[in-house]
């Protein structure tokens, strides 16, 4: 999967510009990132990228890079 495609999904869900999504970006700094949007993200990542996010995974998300690492952990290689 292309890294930009993953970013596109997340940018759309969180209503942010794709360009701001860099590995060290703290998700809590995103205005629309809250306890509700994380559920939408759970759904969108599964539907559009095949990434399964468990409740424990959602608690572990701190920075954008954590989502990419979750994808790679599930065998979804991200290409540039």
């Amino acid at each position: 999967m292309k890294r930009t495609d993953l970013k596109q999904i997340i940018a759309q869900e969180l209503e942010v510009e794709l360009e701001i999504l860099h590995p060290d970006l703290e998700l809590s700094k995103i205005e629309n990132y809250d306890s509700v949007s994380v559920l939408s993200l759970m759904l969108a990542l599964d539907e559009k990228a095949g990434i399964k996010m468990t409740p424990a995974d959602t608690r572990g998300l701190r920075v954008y890079g954590d989502i990419e690492r979750l994808a790679e952990k599930q065998g979804i290689a991200l290409t540039d």
């Binding site: 509700v36 994380v38 559920l39 759970m42 759904l43 468990t54 409740p55 959602t58 608690r59």
Partner: peptide, 23 residues
């Protein structure tokens, strides 16, 4: 941590766990 206010005498919901179970 998400800013939700309650006491132990009020209903608590673990949103991600219930959402995950439901879908």
């Amino acid at each position: 941590e998400s800013g939700i206010i309650r006491t132990k005498e009020h209903l608590y919901m673990n949103g991600p766990a219930v959402f995950h179970f439901s879908i």
